[in-house]
Design a protein around this nucleic acid. Structure first.
Lengths: 177, 177
DNA sequence: CGCCGTTAATCAAAGATTTGACTATCCTAC
DNA sequence: GTAGGATAGTCAAATCTTTGATTAACGGCG
């Protein structure tokens, strides 16, 4: 790690990817640069996207990213049990449980007895919750559109298809329980 | 060693995206379904990817995802100040500060006086830190390769290019300070 | 009918992350 | 040279998330 061949001082979050791939390949010949670049670009893009949506749309409305996802699932899947909400939103059951307490205290989500299993409960949006999620999602989608505007429709379709293929191909991908 | 494929959950997720897009479009005619599908697919794919890498590669080595990212940055950018590490790794300065304490206590990162600014410090990998990150990244990249294996080389290149374009087009994307 | 392994939700403790405040230092303009 | 604003790192409080344990309920099998 002697000399720096690159002007490391001027890198930002995105262009660091180029530097990192070159550097890592040089230090570890076993590295597959293409796979590395793919994962790095994907995770950084997603992270920037989520951060932007959360800070510009949801925080101002008093929702965390997780809170938004939970309301979103209840909105589009209808009333459901915590277990199913956890699966669909990608959270742990404990996280759902804690988050539901918060959202319930805020009057956005209601708990009721589950139809046929007394261990479980049924979660549903309140009227306030429904109002909030529809309004918030409208703004959310506005912002999504300004992101998507950087791509043509064809490109957007290709990107979605490739992400789907990536996801499907990764049969080993574990989800949380 | 428990890397069990869970196709049911993944399919559940994929079909939820379809369902969600249809449902949201029906309830809110103003919604752009293509932008919605793009963001949903992207964030969910990235989330599955990160979760898989973290749980299969880094947790077993005692590293959190954030801890890995910090070591990764120091490894490839060389010794740097916390401010720059925060920029390159996408964390807040406070998070870097806290994380460096942990990693420093674990003997992976060393703090030293910054060359020319007495407000700042210089962070660097220790020998142990260097050993750990190279070993961990080798395993990390192995796993990346098994994800990338689902795509052809051409598809992978296209995907990277489209993500880059998406990121570049979103000039309004805010980064954290 | 009752035993017992599963499954669901929740709780508790530990760890992380964020925002905002605070201290120390830098540096430009007077 | 020095006053004032800007900048770096850290701390504190509030939130969230995760893991593991706990309580309650289900359901198959003798």
């Amino acid at each position: 790690m002697a000399a720096e061949p690159d002007p490391v001082t001027e890198l930002d979050f995105l262009s660091f990817v180029d530097h990192a791939v070159r550097r890592a390949s040089a230090e570890l010949p076993v590295v597959d640069p293409e796979a590395m670049r793919l994962v790095l670009t994907l995770s950084r893009t997603a992270s920037a996207l989520v951060y932007d949506l959360e800070s510009s749309v949801h925080r101002p409305r008093g929702l965390s990213w997780a809170g938004f996802r939970l309301l979103f699932v209840l909105w589009l899947a209808g009333p459901a049990e915590p277990k199913r909400v956890a699966e669909l939103s990608g959270m742990s059951r404990a996280a759902v449980s804690a988050l539901v307490n918060t959202l319930s205290r805020a009057g956005l989500v209601a708990k009721a007895a589950a139809p046929s299993d007394r261990r479980s409960i049924r979660l549903a949006l309140t009227d306030d919750g429904h109002s909030l999620i529809t309004e918030a999602f409208a703004a959310h989608n506005q912002r999504e559109q300004s992101w998507a505007a950087g791509l043509t429709e064809a490109e957007s379709g290709t990107l979605i298809a490739l992400l789907g293929k990536l996801m499907a191909g990764a049969g080993t991908a574990k989800r949380r329980t």
